[in-house]
Simulated assay, not measured.
Amino acid sequence: MEIGNNVLMASKIYISDCTHGSYIGNEYDSDPMSLPIYRRLSVKAVKIEDNVWLGEFVSVLPGVTIGKGTIVGANSVVSKSLPPYVIAVGTPAKPINFFDFEKQRWRKI
C-alpha cells in the first residue's frame, strides 16, 4: 500500500490490499464449498496519490489507484481506479465532477 502526501481521511475508512479467493469467472475461481480460510490469498497493491480526500466510511478495495487531488464522497466504495482531479461518489464510486484547470473550477462530467 502506498499513501501519498497530504491525504485527508475522515473517520471509519476501510482500505484493503488483499482478498481470499478468486471470483472473476475463470479456471482459478474459488470453490464456494471450501472454507474461506483455505481459499487462495490474493494481494493487489493500493495507491492513494497526493492531496486525496477520503470522506467518512469510504472503502477502498484491492488493486485500486486513486489519482492526485481526487475527492471521494462519504459512504463510497472505490472498486476501480479513479483518475486525478475528480470528485467521485457512490457504490461503486464514479466520477461526477472534474477540475477544469483552465477555468479554475469544478465542472460536471
Rank of each mutant, 00 (worst) to 15 (best):
I37M: 11
I96S: 03
L82I: 01
Y14C: 12
T65P: 06
V7G: 02
D50K: 01
E102N: 10
I15F: 08
N5L: 12
L54V: 09
K80H: 13
N51Q: 03
I109G: 11
V64D: 03
A88Y: 07
I37N: 07
P83F: 01
K47L: 04
G73D: 09
D31F: 00
D31M: 00
V46M: 02
P95K: 14
S16A: 13
L8R: 13
M1T: 15
D17R: 07
G90A: 03
F57Q: 14
D29A: 00
I109S: 10
G69F: 10
K94P: 05
V43N: 05
N97A: 08
Y14F: 11
F57P: 00
I66H: 08
I15R: 11
E27K: 13
G21H: 01
I37W: 08
P36M: 10
R107T: 12
I66N: 14
L8E: 13
L61V: 07
D17K: 11
L82Q: 01
V52A: 00
N75Q: 05
E102F: 01
D100T: 13
I3N: 03
F57S: 12
K12A: 11
K103H: 09
D50L: 02
G55I: 10
S16H: 04
G63P: 04
R105N: 15
N75F: 05
D31H: 09
V77N: 10
Y14N: 11
S81R: 08
A74E: 14
K44S: 15
P36A: 08
S16L: 09
G25S: 06
S79E: 11
Y28W: 09
D100Y: 07
N75A: 04
G67C: 06
Q104N: 10
K44I: 00
P84N: 06
V89R: 04
D50E: 03
E102D: 13
N97H: 13
Q104L: 07
P95R: 12
K44L: 08
D29K: 02
N6V: 01
V64Q: 01
Y85W: 12
L8F: 15
Y14Q: 12
Q104C: 02
